[in-house]
Amino acid sequence: MSQQRPVLELENVSVAYDSDKGPVQAVNRVNLTLYPEEIVGLVGESGSGKSTLAYAIMRLLKGSAYLAEGTIRVMGQNVYNLSKKELRQFRWSQMAMVFQSAMSALNPVMTVEEQIIDTLRTHRRDMSLSQARKRAEELLNLVSIDLKHLRSFPHQLSGGMRQRVVIAIAIALDPAFVIMDEPTTALDVVVQRSILDQIQEIQRYVHFAILFISHDFSLVAELASRVAIMYAGRLVEVTNSGRLQLLENHHPYTEGLLRAIPKLTADEVTIEGIPGYPPDLVDLPTGCAFHPRCPRVFADCMTDRPELYQIEDGLVECHLFKGAKEVHYV
């Protein structure tokens, strides 16, 4: 792992929503570090807290959601110590985000060019209109969209093209890292593939780190160098993506996810699901939150919360690994 200064540091980050039944812990003491130019995948079921974590990093939590504890630092700067004005400047120039909903992230009544220029000129007030235009052209070239679409409105573009435009807007100010929240979920597999190739290609030219959120395990394993697996608001495992080829030495939840990937090369296509449903975040199971669905559950799992153990170069939060080196965050 790189010894460079990290672009993103999450320390004991918890996010809660206020509800009638008391606070709901959507993200529970998450620790994660991203280094420059690294792609880290964040995988989990729907409702596991992936997007909430992304919004917390961007300091875009809305409604009753709030950062309950922990610190979030981007480029060494605590995001929650910035004033509103500083935050507006900081966000997008240092960290950007590609939203889940490519279809609706663009303003329907503004042209593609206007929306890109808007982004540029809000942050760089000294930038002239012609400079901004030139940059907009560069960006569209970078995401392989014909320049004639500068004058197009979002509804005139296909879903894939809209997502490319959103990516272009995200990298417009050369941020150090970009969160991509399921950027390909709404697209068909062919377009999905071309967008992923595009992301990797752009990342080779423009160097930025990516936190890639997805529920598609195979896709993340291929794209990212490290993968973090989230369950019920906790990171249950962080592993080198190479190790995901093997079914050993993983959290039982990760193993379940790995078994759920259909293997096209196998003679017989067998897919195993994980029995049960994700837990209710208001009323989490005692001990390890995964124990009601875990095939290898034993007595301790129901009563004690597992420690985090170092397994090879990854981290696993599971009682099965008792005896391995424990990792403690402050």
Partner: peptide
Amino acid sequence: VFAEAKGI
């Protein structure tokens, strides 16, 4: 939300 995030 996207516009707000990008600094508008």
